[in-house]
Amino acid sequence: MIIQKQKAFEDILKSLEGEQKVFLAGCADCAAACKTGGEEELVEMKARLEAAGKSITGTAVFDTACQLGAVRQKAREYEQAIKEADSILVMACGTGAQTIGETLEKKAHIGVDSLFVGQVNRLGKYTERCSTCGQCVLEAFEGICPVTRCAKGLLNGPCGGSKGGKCEIDPEKDCGWVLIYKKMEALGKLDKMRAYQPAKDQGSRHTPRQFTWPKKTPEGIKK
């Protein structure tokens, strides 16, 4: 899930300076789960913006704000309200905001900060497990990702900064390499620590990334 948090309300207001009529957009997926732009959050945001003197021409929670076709289709229901607005305030991730901005031909403002792709530990607590490096090496590390869970992304073992199982950057954060080591030890696979791991091909991280199915539908996938 794209973990996200709302921007400070003053910053949102500042981005709307000089614009009176605003259309509010949210997303029923990650934004709803992170409580940044689901049904309830849009009601709340509407009330706060109105109290600040804005008029809200409409609100819509898109099913998946990052899906081009779905956004285009749903937007038809709100054509009039979107047309009337000076701008759209998107309470969803950066991909959602850009998808909405590209699709609806209206200035789109962003009301959240997209943090990372993460695991939901519980409502209000999220942690990163994968930084989408494009070439998954989990197999070599017994299912714990050193690219993401080691603060330095080291592939050949821990640095000297690990202490009491925690990372040198923050005593609240586990040292990813202690996790990997302990798991390998428990599984009797410490020999795997001996394997030289070559430098990663960072080409798969060069942005902007895109991925297109080589044929119409890849083998083994039913549409």
Binding site: N156, G157, P158, G160, S162, K163, G164, C175, W177, V178, Y181, L190, M193, R194, Y196
Partner: peptide, 13 residues
């Protein structure tokens, strides 16, 4: 290091 075994494995590499 309190992870001295891991340090030695890395030294080998």
């Amino acid at each position: 290091s309190d992870m001295v075994e891991a340090q030695i494995l890395k030294l080998e590499k």
